[in-house]
Each structure stands twice: as structure tokens, then as C-alpha cells.
Amino acid sequence: MIKLIVDTLLSQVRTLWLVFLKLFKKKDTVEYPDQQPYMFPRWRGRIILSRDPDGEERCVACNLCAVACPVDCIALQKGEMEDGRWYPEFFRINFSRCIMCGFCEEACPTNAIQLTPDFEMAEYIRQDMVWEKEDLLINGTGKYHDYNFYRVAGKQIEGKDKGEALNEAAPVDVRSLLP
């Protein structure tokens, strides 16, 4: 009992002492904006839409980012090109709601939506925080350089016939009786 009381008391005193010693430690604060902090590449900041290595839009409007979003701040509508490619007719992120959780990037099956280290997104007018596809789409692949969804997917698009995707055999001749 006495030992418990003494131990507890000493532990409190030790805590106070250790915290007091922090007075003489180097401070962690980075004095932004006088000093630019180092942003890690996987920092979750401003969201962009990337293009595949061939320069086509990566987003296929599958809606997974929108449904993964915990604050429901992504809205989009699927459109379809002549050749069967899916793309977003509009793609809107309401950054005034976004919490930069990165779930959309996790959910994206085509690496289209990515979070970047840019965090300087403050606006004086809230309406300016609603970004449309034109604002989001960049001319590059972002963090993932080689992935092209349509080279893997089975859907036929211009320049990639049936059977030409990764790991695909040529289309079957239904009329053939050969094994």
C-alpha cells in the first residue's frame, strides 16, 4: 500500500521532470511559410486525375471513389466513347468537404485518382473549392507510371482488339469444331 502510494507519487514526479526537460530540447515546429516543409510523395493533399502512359484519361467512371468517399464529396457521371472506352462526363470534387482521407485513391482500380503533396488549397470563396474535371485532370501519370487499365481489361477499345489484352488468347472461332 505504502509502496503503491510512493511509486505513484514518484511516477508523477518523474513525469513532471521529464516533461520539464523538454524545455531544452530542439523544437519540431517548421515555421511555414518562412520555411517550406518537405512533403513526402505519398502525402495526402490535393486530388488529381491522371492519364495513362498513352496520354488517355485513366478514369473509367467506375464510381468506386465516389462510393468509398466517407463525406460523399465526389460526384461523376459515366460516359462512353465511340470505341467503348468509359470516361467521366463530369467529375466533380467538392474540396470544401474533402477530408483528404485517400480512400478514393485506395479504391481506384485504374490508378486514375491520386492524392498529391500539394496542400495549399485555401480559397477566400467557398464556391472556388468545387473542382471540375478540367481542374483535376493533369497531363501525366502521377505516382504510377506504367499502369494502363485497358491493356489489362478484356473490353475491346480502339487500337486493342479482342484477345490483345494482357494474357489473352485470340478470339475463339465459334464455328470451329477443333478442340
Binding site: 462510393v67 468517399c69 463525406v71 465526389i74 460526384a75 470534387i93 467538392n94 468537404r97 464556391q127 471540375e132
Partner: peptide, 15 residues
């Protein structure tokens, strides 16, 4: 699972 509630009309008004 309804998505996009805070963005679908945000182009008209962010509020």
C-alpha cells in the same frame, strides 16, 4: 451507400 451527396449539386451552389 448513396454517393456524391455533397458534390452532386455543388456546381450550382457549394452550400
Amino acid at each position: 451507400r448513396y454517393s456524391g451527396r455533397t458534390a452532386m449539386k455543388a456546381n450550382l451552389n457549394v452550400h
